[in-house]
Amino acid sequence: MKKVLSFIVIGFLAASGANASSHVGQCVFPKTKILPNGNLSFVHAIDISDQPSPEAAIKPLVSMKAYQISAEEKGFIKLVTVPDYSLADPQANAGKIVGWGKIRDFDFQAQRNCN
């Protein structure tokens, strides 16, 4: 009986550890700083690429919005847009692929704030 219980506990620990390593589905916001006038600004320029590779073509991230992670690979996260509840149809632009960014350029935020 003790062996069975031990295997169950080890199974739960292994399963919870596997989920913790993936950020897919989580909400992120670009790292920002507060300027003297109270506005937000990016901490530094954030590059977005079309592939999860340092050699891929890049473009700067220009919109300061929340994004959802749809994939993760080699320190890069694939960003997709989230519903915008300030629009008449919040789902109109949701789920569109923005590109791949480096995970270190973003802060995680609670799912309830992902809008």
Rank of each mutant, 00 (worst) to 15 (best):
residue 54 P to G: 11
residue 1 M to P: 07
residue 89 D to N: 14
residue 62 V to W: 01
residue 78 K to Q: 14
residue 28 V to M: 10
residue 69 I to L: 05
residue 62 V to F: 01
residue 113 N to L: 13
residue 87 L to W: 02
residue 38 G to V: 02
residue 112 R to F: 11
residue 106 F to R: 02
residue 68 Q to N: 10
residue 17 G to D: 09
residue 90 P to M: 11
residue 87 L to S: 02
residue 75 G to P: 02
residue 111 Q to S: 14
residue 64 M to G: 05
residue 57 A to F: 04
residue 46 I to S: 01
residue 109 Q to P: 01
residue 83 P to A: 05
residue 109 Q to N: 06
residue 94 A to T: 03
residue 72 E to D: 09
residue 23 H to Q: 13
residue 4 V to F: 10
residue 112 R to A: 14
residue 88 A to I: 12
residue 18 A to Q: 10
residue 72 E to P: 01
residue 101 G to F: 00
residue 10 I to P: 09
residue 81 T to P: 00
residue 30 P to L: 05
residue 37 N to A: 12
residue 55 E to T: 13
residue 104 R to T: 14
residue 75 G to F: 09
residue 13 L to I: 15
residue 46 I to E: 01
residue 38 G to M: 01
residue 101 G to W: 00
residue 32 T to C: 06
residue 16 S to R: 09
residue 62 V to H: 00
residue 94 A to R: 01
residue 110 A to L: 03
residue 54 P to D: 14
residue 90 P to D: 12
residue 101 G to L: 00
residue 43 V to F: 12
residue 21 S to Y: 14
residue 95 G to H: 07
residue 101 G to I: 00
residue 42 F to D: 09
residue 82 V to C: 07
residue 97 I to L: 15
residue 44 H to G: 04
residue 80 V to F: 09
residue 88 A to D: 12
residue 109 Q to W: 06
residue 110 A to Q: 02
residue 40 L to G: 05
residue 64 M to P: 01
residue 114 C to E: 01
residue 69 I to T: 03
residue 7 F to W: 11
residue 45 A to I: 10
residue 48 I to N: 03
residue 14 A to D: 07
residue 2 K to L: 12
residue 90 P to F: 12
residue 53 S to Y: 06
residue 3 K to L: 11
residue 105 D to Q: 05
residue 92 A to D: 07
residue 115 N to D: 15
residue 48 I to K: 05
residue 66 A to W: 02
residue 18 A to V: 10
residue 74 K to W: 11
residue 3 K to M: 10
residue 61 L to F: 07
residue 113 N to T: 09
residue 85 Y to T: 14
residue 23 H to G: 14
residue 83 P to R: 01
residue 48 I to G: 04
residue 105 D to T: 04
residue 108 F to M: 06
residue 51 Q to S: 06
residue 97 I to F: 10
residue 18 A to T: 07
residue 107 D to G: 11
residue 58 I to K: 02
residue 25 G to L: 12
residue 67 Y to M: 03
residue 9 V to D: 05
residue 60 P to V: 06
residue 76 F to A: 03
residue 88 A to F: 12
residue 101 G to H: 00
residue 56 A to K: 00
residue 11 G to Q: 06
residue 56 A to C: 02
residue 103 I to W: 06
residue 6 S to T: 11
residue 104 R to A: 15
residue 104 R to G: 12
residue 18 A to E: 09
residue 34 I to V: 15
residue 52 P to T: 10
residue 73 E to Q: 14
residue 57 A to Q: 04
residue 99 G to S: 08
residue 30 P to I: 05
residue 92 A to Q: 09
residue 35 L to F: 14
residue 89 D to G: 03
residue 78 K to F: 10
residue 15 A to P: 01
residue 52 P to M: 09
residue 59 K to I: 05
residue 54 P to Q: 13
